[in-house]
């Protein structure tokens, strides 16, 4: 023990780290290792055949595409919401602020059935869209709607604190130097907020790629058309094709890890910005 830590008078190092490491290995590390081990029971050929199967490719396209569009929608509207919440006063602001976290608190299954009911052709919203020929529920657009809902809080919650910390003096300085409001925004505010915006975007994107609960209800789950990757994994599992499920899971995980790495780099960048 002595060798791995700097000596300290505060007690409980062995106990706390011991338990934390044991528990983390048991719950997270070993099961994840098992996943990789399982996918290696496939031969190289089988592995590639599974992960590059046209049905799998179609699911990647849908998962990534819908997640990307959802994250883009959240990038724009999340920014507006954050801006409005920080900069303006209006009635009910505190309630609205609290409500932003609803997608974190509301179980995904509940969100899934609620959105499906709304956007079904006879639903409250769907009835206005279907005459226009827009199909949301049981179509790729439905997946986008669900993933937008799931990722909604991320951009708001990453941009909000940065916007609060921004000193008004900087804008006042810009204004006193003759910059118009739009120029101030474009040249002063936007660059300062960019790291937070991108972090929020990446978080929303990452969350959406893995999402399952809210999508399965609204998507209709048609292979090649509205089948997301997590659903394909479940399908393989239900057919007892463990290795196939594991292979797809590895693809999904690898993608998540790359995103996680990217998010960490972004956060490092933004904290360096804030610090400098």
């Amino acid at each position: 023990m002595r060798s791995i830590r700097k000596p300290s008078v505060i007690p409980g190092f062995g106990l706390s780290l011991g338990f934390a490491a044991f528990y983390a290995s048991l719950i997270v590390f070993i099961p994840l290792a098992a996943l990789f081990a399982k996918s290696f029971t496939l031969t190289w050929d089988e592995f590639w055949k599974t992960v590059l199967h046209p049905q799998a490719i179609a699911s990647y396209k849908l998962s990534l595409g819908a997640s990307f569009i959802g994250a883009c929608i959240n990038l724009v509207f999340g920014f507006i919401v954050a801006w409005v919440l920080v900069r303006y006063q209006f009635f009910g602001k505190k309630v609205v602020d609290a409500l932003v976290d609803l997608p974190f608190a509301l179980p995904t299954a509940v969100a899934g059935i609620a959105l499906t009911t709304l956007y079904a052709p006879q639903g409250w919203i769907g009835q206005f869209l279907s005459p226009l020929g827009i199909k949301v529920a049981y179509a790729p657009l439905g997946v986008v709607v669900a993933l937008t809902f799931i990722g909604l809080p991320f951009v708001v919650r990453t941009v909000q604190p940065v916007l609060e910390e921004l000193e008004k003096e900087i804008e006042e300085a810009a204004a006193s130097l003759g910059a118009g409001r739009w120029a101030t925004f474009r040249r002063i505010l936007f660059p300062a907020l960019l790291p937070a915006l991108l972090t929020g975007f990446a978080l929303a994107f990452a969350r959406a790629v893995g999402e399952y609960g809210s999508v399965v209800f609204i998507s209709g789950n048609m292979p090649y058309k509205t089948e997301i990757t997590p659903l394909l994994i479940v399908t393989k599992l239900e057919q007892y094709n463990y290795a196939g499920a594991a292979a797809l899971a590895v693809v999904l995980l690898t993608f998540s890890f790359v995103l996680l790495l990217l998010i960490n780099i972004l956060q490092h960048w933004s904290s360096k910005r804030a610090g400098g």
Binding site: I30, P31, G210, S256
Partner: peptide, 24 residues
Amino acid sequence: VLITLIDLPFAVSPVVAGLIYVLL
């Protein structure tokens, strides 16, 4: 390493989270 391990479940799809226990 411990900090990364703590963050990991946030990056894992719920479906994969269930899958790993099925595999085990």
